[in-house]
Design a protein around this nucleic acid. Structure first.
Lengths: 134, 134
DNA sequence: CGGGATCCCTTGCGATACTG
DNA sequence: CAGTATCGCAAGGGATCCCG
């Protein structure tokens, strides 16, 4: 993987650091609420605080960091309006839009099977507890 | 392992631990090579070492852990043959198979845009470096 | 409004060694 | 073959404060 810089994901790679391993890309997209962020930015420009309210559960810090990462990877475009108060808009790039369908499928699946996963988990845990002597 | 329901989205077991937040489910699926594992187990039963060879780059530890997590969440079925030497097979459950298409899309996208992401990253980093005074 | 900087605990994860 | 156990560092990520 990258060079492991300081906390925040700022990987300082030297010039000519080859292609990114697909695994790393997927991890970035799926981790830390990036999916919701991309989807939120897929329906036109969206502001920072709008996102914060839309995504619900994400911390300010993580939102900022993930936005930066996605921008860096070319998945989001960030536009700053030097007004007072400041206004910043994010929107998905064409590259990111290609993911839209798949990401919707994924989130839909997760919502539909939320209970099923919880049930499976309880069954598994119960079985483990039963197999463990006191 | 097991409990540790700390900030971020740990797994709270215990009786009646409600439904799983979709976010957490997605993170589990996307992180630590779970995608490749699910896909590898989508074409019929596959053995532990086969997976280890197929996935390439995953550590023994992570493979084991992720397999356990996916089994616990009801995405993989694990079958043990008490032979000598032991034989263990994993295969995707129907629930996990529903993800197949989307996961293939995702991995395909990641492969296609690997270079594009790398390029975007270099551009971003260059711009940052340019904006930073010495 | 939209962040950046710092603190600091928690978790992820590789490396290594041992086992049925 | 298919794991489990333990160690140890580094990354993850929340909380808090500050700033243009």
């Amino acid at each position: 993987m990258g060079v492991t810089a300081s906390p925040g994901g700022g990987s300082l790679d030297g010039p000519g650091a080859g292609p990114i391993p697909p695994r790393e890309i997927l991890d970035k997209i799926c981790g830390q609420g990036a999916i919701q962020i991309i989807l939120a930015a897929s329906d036109g420009p969206i502001r920072f605080t709008e996102m914060e309210r839309t995504i619900e559960g994400i911390s300010r810090r993580m939102l900022t960091l993930t936005l930066r990462n996605l921008e860096r990877d070319g998945l989001l475009e960030r536009r700053v309006y030097p007004t007072v108060p400041p206004k910043v808009e994010y929107q998905a790039t064409p590259m990111a839009l290609e993911l839209r369908e798949a990401l919707i499928t994924l989130t839909g699946w997760a919502r539909r099977h939320s209970a099923g996963v919880a049930a499976a988990r309880e069954r598994y845990d119960a079985r483990q507890a039963a197999a463990t002597p006191t």
